Simulated scan of single mutants.
Amino acid sequence: MVGSSHEAMHRIFQKDPALLTRALQQVLRIPFPEPRDFAAMNVDLTEVEPVERRVDTLLRAETDQGTFLLVVESQGKPDERKRGSWPYYLGYLREKYRCEPVLIVVTQNASTARWAAEPIHVGVPERPSMVVWPFVLGPENVPVVADETEAVRDPALAVLSAMTHGRGPKAVGILESLVAALKTLDADSAAVFVQFVDSCLTDPQARQMWRDFMTTVQYFWRHPLAEEVREQGREEGREEGREEGRAHERAEIILRNLQWRQIDVPDSVRERVLSSTDVDELGTWLDRSYRVADARELFGEGPAA
């Protein structure tokens, strides 16, 4: 599971799906057709096999050029496993729904944005069978909305700007402009946007500044919807703790199996097993722990792989 900052970076597009297509058109200069309608879809991509696969946000966009599936992934840091997951997501969705999927990665980190923008080649390097080229929204292309008039004209984009750039000297102008924009919205929408921004401000000074601003509009901060978003973030944290507990339990079982089978466990193997937080990876190692002859074979480094 993930933290609240991760959630906010993609859930803003659930709150305002049109922001996503505006970002494609205006920020990335992609000639994406104008949607007539949006619908949220089930993010669970799990098949019959007991391997859980979920995207962060999945939207269906109906346009004059056909139906598109907008797959939004919030990415905090580079993760090479995603380069295996993303082609699967797109292939699965295209086959299941018979319409074109579009992958959009959202990040607050410039180096992560550059990593995510690299094409993913599947197959023979000289002639790949598939190339996945994500669209990326990050600090290097999301506009800095520090003008009050611009923020009022497009409050959702101003929120995305604050979530992406809310650190350093830019933060003051961005957050001040956003306060003015929020006052033009209904209380329900403003309350959710307030919490999204608060979740994404990693700079302590910027976060304190934002909370100071919100003391002038306490209704937004205390609104039930804002509290609901905060509670969802707390629940995600609790679930993350449960997931870490399951991973640690599997790691301990793996090591006990090897000890019971009188197989020597080098420190490097022990550290790798105990440091893993991937429940699926640990499940594979657990299965192998019943039959390997050498502890290093847990990782596919021998005939038991």
Rank of each mutant, 00 (worst) to 15 (best):
V2G: 01
G3M: 00
H6E: 04
Q14Y: 06
K15F: 07
P17A: 07
L20S: 08
A23V: 11
R29N: 12
I30W: 12
F32G: 05
N42I: 09
E49G: 01
V55W: 03
T63E: 11
Q75G: 04
P78C: 13
R81T: 15
G84D: 14
S85Q: 14
W86G: 04
P87G: 06
L90D: 10
L90F: 10
L93N: 05
Y97G: 02
I104E: 00
T107R: 02
A113Y: 07
W115V: 04
E118I: 10
V122F: 10
G123R: 07
P128N: 04
V131T: 15
W133K: 14
P134T: 06
V136S: 08
N141I: 12
A146N: 13
A146T: 10
D147T: 13
A151C: 04
V152G: 00
V152P: 03
R153K: 14
P155G: 12
A156I: 08
A158Q: 06
A158K: 01
E176L: 13
L178K: 07
A181F: 01
L185Y: 01
V194H: 02
L201M: 06
Q205L: 11
M209D: 07
W210L: 05
V217Q: 15
P224Q: 05
A226F: 05
A226M: 03
R238L: 14
E239W: 12
G241C: 07
I253E: 08
N257M: 04
Q262H: 14
Q262N: 14
D264W: 05
S268E: 14
V269M: 01
R272N: 02
R272H: 06
R272V: 01
S276M: 05
D278T: 05
E281F: 06
E281I: 00
L282S: 03
L286I: 03
L286N: 02
S289I: 09
Y290A: 09
A293H: 13
G300P: 10
P303D: 03
A304H: 15
